Amino acid sequence: MGNGHRIVIVGAGYTGMFSAVRLAHRTRGTGARITLVNASDRFVERLRLHQVAAGQQLAEHRIPDLLAGTGVAFVRGAVTAIDPEARTVTVDGTGDLGYDTLVYALGSSTDTANVPGADVHAHTLDSPQTAGRFAARLAALAATGGAVTVCGGGLTGIEAAAEIAEGHPGLHVTLISREEPGAMMGPRARAHLHRALDRLGVTVETGARITKVLPDAVELADGRLVHSDACLWTAGVKVSPLAARAGIATDDRGLVRVDATLRSVSHPEIHAVGDAAAVRLAYGQLHGTCQSGLPTAQYTADAIARLVRGKAVRPFRFGYVHQPVSLGRRDAVIQFTKADETPRRLHLTGRIAVAYKETVSGSPLLTYRLSKRMNVTTVVSKGGRATRRPAA
């Protein structure tokens, strides 16, 4: 590919940031020029925004500071278009950036469009600003007492409900979910999760389909109204429409369809990572978590570095290891899993689970800093036999 190879990374979330820092180290001496584009200059730890929503103060991190010493150029601005034929990215307020290789790392956001009223009356955890507005609402309610609904019983909803209940014991918190919270866990880990929610005073509405979000209630399909002075929406995600609009091959959700090396099946100069990519392995499609996202970023940085040097690339392999769930600041549950994310018998709870989560699946900032100087491996498992055969 030669010197002066232009690599543009769009999106500076967990995966985009890791791709940029690792690529800078891996392509050193090749003459490659790396540019990272993001709408904000603030690095957001989205996995911790439920803590912000509960009223906790987290340290702020600026993207230029995290990139210091890497040689990566940072461009602040929203990406408004991609032209894969001209190989350009249009950035609001900046113009067009040309690329030879593009890393598509535009992550997901909360989907509030499928239930009437969710986009108007519910809060989200999409940014520090939205989480901060919800925190302010909770603070106002805490003075007099009130009811809070958390819609969506996935990991984000569980962690948010527990955090809110622990931080504001005077509020009545209800977690509304179609499926049983923790259904993907083994029976003992799931039992601990439910005991923790019960201890924190969280009411769980299971098997409930939400039909409407009102200013002061959540309406269920059976006609019941769950009183709500503040509603947090965590049920479902959507991805940026930019790839589909650009004519890049996507699935029915808008995720970039990739081959075994995480390159676009329609435009191989485009690599997709994290929850922007439809990554299929033999056991199924990856879902958007930090556990699988960071390995896609690590793999893609290494793959591009090899391609820049004219070397071959092996297929991406990954296997899940655990499902870590915070239950407030003093409790957690870790369900260890097989590569396909089905539960094993082993699990951790309580303080040891809290320590494990903070050490093994906590903030990636240390990984970014170390990656400026060395190759830091984030892939705990390549999946063994479960990923040796190609995806169906």
Rank of each mutant, 00 (worst) to 15 (best):
H5M: 15
A244N: 08
L366I: 11
L370W: 10
R317T: 15
V103S: 09
T124K: 10
R26S: 12
T250K: 08
E341S: 15
L370D: 05
Q51V: 00
Q285P: 03
Y99T: 08
E180A: 12
L49N: 08
H192D: 04
L102D: 00
A392D: 13
G152L: 08
D275V: 09
G146W: 07
V333I: 11
V72K: 01
L281A: 03
T15I: 03
V376R: 13
T206I: 04
F134Q: 04
G384N: 07
Q285M: 15
A39E: 14
A355E: 05
L327H: 05
I82V: 15
S326L: 10
P128K: 07
V150P: 00
S40D: 14
R385H: 02
L138P: 02
D331R: 07
A165W: 02
S363G: 10
P215C: 06
H123G: 13
R388G: 10
E85V: 15
P390C: 10
A217G: 00
R6C: 02
V44T: 11
P116S: 13
G132L: 08
F43I: 06
T112I: 05
R257P: 00
L106M: 14
I34V: 14
E205R: 12
A147W: 01
I248E: 02
Y14S: 11
E163K: 08
R76M: 12
L49V: 09
R245E: 14
E45Q: 14
A235W: 10
M374W: 15
V258I: 03
V204K: 13
P169T: 12
E179R: 14
D259Y: 10
P295E: 01
G328L: 01
V103T: 06
Y99G: 00
R209Q: 14
R314S: 15
V239E: 02
G362T: 07
G95Y: 12
G153K: 11
T378G: 01
